[in-house]
Amino acid sequence: MKYLDIPTLTRINSFLDNVDVGDLMVRGNLEAYSCKLAGLDKKLSRSLEEEVMESSSPSELSKSPVGPLVDSNSRKTLIYLILTLNHIYPDYDFTLLRAQHFCKEESLVGIQELVSARLLEAAKVWESTPGLGEEPLTDAVWAGIDEVISLAESDVYRQVLECGSGYRSDLESDPFGEKGSVWSFNYFFYNKKAKRILYFSCRGMSKSAIELSQTTDGARYNTDTEGELEADAATSMANDMDL
């Protein structure tokens, strides 16, 4: 998959990178990719397709959130969703996700309403930021998405962060379990005809949790550094004694 550098999305991403809205920090991201596979993606796609066929139940083969998995187009959709996550979050591995870990959205209006509600406070910051507030934040977001993906021609999916199959997002398995996350959403807009996929995610992070995490990380770093210095000193002393 190839990352698509879209100036409109870059402008929005720069704003959504870290928006202070009082008790929360809002962090969002929009990334678009071409679904034309090559190299490692192509190799991984082939192995994933085999694993999906082998691990899917008869009911999933006939019906799933991405379509019947006996259909190669449905399997491709699932693989594109997985590969997109792998590209955006390279420190995590999503290859164990399957069709039941995603949900197909039927109402774009419902998505837009939820996004508007979540970004309400961030939108106020956008309006007061010089050079950005000429149009409402959500208008800019949806115009940018439509420009890249053509909403009228796209299917929309989201990752299910907890489901009956036993999968639950946590800090070790993927980034959506990040401590301090008060709310979050993630949507995949897939235009099969254009062979493009756009990912839109956002989360509201508790400031107190972020500060606690930074303090903990700092303390851990200091402890590790002190341990390394003590080990270096011990090694140096041993070398001196040998001399």
Results as ranks from 00 to 15, higher is better:
132 L>N: 15
132 L>S: 13
132 L>Q: 13
132 L>G: 05
133 G>E: 07
133 G>A: 11
133 G>H: 09
134 E>L: 12
134 E>R: 14
134 E>Q: 13
134 E>T: 09
135 E>Y: 15
135 E>W: 10
135 E>P: 07
135 E>A: 15
136 P>M: 08
136 P>C: 07
137 L>H: 03
137 L>E: 03
137 L>R: 02
138 T>W: 03
138 T>H: 02
138 T>C: 10
139 D>G: 10
139 D>F: 12
139 D>W: 13
139 D>K: 14
140 A>C: 13
140 A>E: 09
140 A>K: 14
141 V>H: 00
141 V>E: 00
141 V>C: 02
141 V>K: 02
142 W>L: 04
142 W>I: 01
142 W>T: 02
142 W>Y: 05
142 W>A: 02
142 W>V: 02
142 W>P: 02
143 A>G: 07
143 A>T: 13
143 A>W: 07
143 A>N: 10
144 G>Y: 00
144 G>S: 11
144 G>P: 00
145 I>T: 02
145 I>M: 08
145 I>C: 09
146 D>G: 06
146 D>A: 13
146 D>I: 03
147 E>P: 08
147 E>N: 14
147 E>M: 12
148 V>P: 05
148 V>E: 03
148 V>W: 03
148 V>N: 04
148 V>K: 05
149 I>D: 00
150 S>W: 11
151 L>F: 11
151 L>H: 05
151 L>A: 06
152 A>N: 10
152 A>E: 11
153 E>G: 07
153 E>P: 09
153 E>F: 09
154 S>H: 02
154 S>W: 01
154 S>R: 00
155 D>A: 05
155 D>K: 04
155 D>E: 05
155 D>Q: 10
156 V>Q: 01
156 V>L: 01
156 V>H: 00
156 V>W: 00
157 Y>A: 00
157 Y>W: 05
157 Y>F: 04
157 Y>E: 00
158 R>N: 06
158 R>C: 11
158 R>H: 05
158 R>A: 08
158 R>T: 06
159 Q>N: 10
159 Q>I: 09
160 V>Q: 08
160 V>I: 12
160 V>G: 02
160 V>H: 04
160 V>S: 05
160 V>Y: 02
160 V>K: 11
161 L>F: 09
161 L>I: 14
161 L>N: 11
162 E>L: 11
163 C>G: 15
163 C>M: 13
163 C>Y: 14
164 G>M: 05
164 G>C: 06
164 G>V: 06
164 G>K: 08
164 G>E: 08
165 S>L: 09
165 S>T: 14
165 S>N: 10
165 S>Y: 07
166 G>S: 07
167 Y>A: 05
167 Y>S: 04
168 R>N: 12
169 S>N: 07
169 S>L: 06
169 S>R: 10
169 S>Q: 02
169 S>T: 13
169 S>A: 11
169 S>E: 03
170 D>P: 09
170 D>W: 12
170 D>Y: 09
170 D>C: 12
170 D>H: 13
